[in-house]
Design a protein around this nucleic acid. Sequence first.
DNA 1: TTTATTTTTTAGGTTAATCTAAAAATTATT
DNA 2: AATAATTTTTAGATTAACCTAAAAAATAAA
Lengths: 219, 219
Amino acid sequence: MAISFTEENYLKVIHRLSEATSEDISTNAVAELMQTKAASVTDMLRKLAEKGWVNYQKYQGVRLSAEGEKIALSIVRKHRLWEVFLVDKMGFNWDEVHEIAEQLEHIESDQLVNKLDEYLGFPKTDPHGDPIPNKDGVLPELAYSHLSDIKAAKTCKLMGVAQDSAVFLQLLTKLNLSLGAKLDIQEINEFDRSIFVSINDAAPIFISHEVAKNILVKI
Amino acid sequence: MAISFTEENYLKVIHRLSEATSEDISTNAVAELMQTKAASVTDMLRKLAEKGWVNYQKYQGVRLSAEGEKIALSIVRKHRLWEVFLVDKMGFNWDEVHEIAEQLEHIESDQLVNKLDEYLGFPKTDPHGDPIPNKDGVLPELAYSHLSDIKAAKTCKLMGVAQDSAVFLQLLTKLNLSLGAKLDIQEINEFDRSIFVSINDAAPIFISHEVAKNILVKI
DNA sequence: TTTATTTTTTAGGTTAATCTAAAAATTATT
DNA sequence: AATAATTTTTAGATTAACCTAAAAAATAAA
Ligand SMILES: [Mn+2]
Ligand SMILES: [Mn+2]
Ligand SMILES: [Mn+2]
Ligand SMILES: [Mn+2]
């Protein structure tokens, strides 16, 4: 069955919201991420249910069906592989690739995706540390912690970010924070939950709780 | 001003038709290449004229404006660069890339196109021998002849094809005809205009006029 | 130079994806 | 349990891109 870019984007958004919770996804939550109105979402959910890609009962919220999940994962796979391509092969910075990948993720050719995967050396993660589903839609499980959840001074390694926005990524770059960076947590301040941390053995600096929430680390 | 995929495809088609003639382009000609109906074309031409991308007076046919020409060339540039990428980097055959490039040509990022161009080594032609417009929309002039127009036995080199269709390209591959092939024309048969030709010094074979019409050579 | 044929445009509809405003259902608060 | 607030759905429009059928204009043929 033919699928439109818009339908693909809806499935991707429902998938993203579903990763954070086991509850059904609300119309409003979808509307916010899709940057559209709830009324439009209701229309689309009816259509997606019709096509068998989501389970939806009015007023009850929505979940992806098995088939919908498969489609969503294939879009995520394409998005992340293209991001790797843009950074590794085209020389873009990690804060410049998300918007372009939003377009490239809709290119339809299984052959191309698999050749691209091979060309890139079957990467496990994208430039933001997010896992890349394999050909069969299986996501490698990466058990990372949010830097903001760490309770005591210890050493950890920056493995990913929880946000792709350019402003956030540019701030990290300014702080000399990139994938693989070594973080020696010196102190966690109770007052504003800021973290005093040494990055790659440099003199320690303060990182706000807001930033720490969006940094994923391996302990 | 925002442009849709459909509008881009119309401009590309008008551009393609304009290369073959200096006359205005007819509604029907556009309809045929766009695989749509003349009535739909009329609607679109009005809209494109409105946006300043074509000059159009009803019943008089259509031509690209300077701005329309610029847009069309940028799409052609993207199409052909992506085709080079697919063949040179992804390992596709020349008969497999056109459809995928039809999608990729709509990806919007000047930065990406220019980085891709550099990554590919600033190619002058695509995998079918078609010239690639540079950053400023300038097309390298390649003065090739149609094999079918050659009148006497002589030696020439295959430089391009006048058609991107998979069936045609696959036939050429079967005949051992690829870009750069050396053609020693032995004889031109008056009866069916077939050509008896040796390819890369192999035993000569017959090539139909229909095939010869779509082969571009340098003498 | 009429008449016939072909081409192009207009008129009126359809579908996908969106919107605003109003109604209905659900959830939260007295 | 009744009322208030919030969420979600429906109703009715809009826009882009398409369609068919009919009318109008241009071109070709008699
Ligand atoms: Mn991204
Ligand atoms: Mn990413
Ligand atoms: Mn092509
Ligand atoms: Mn080509």
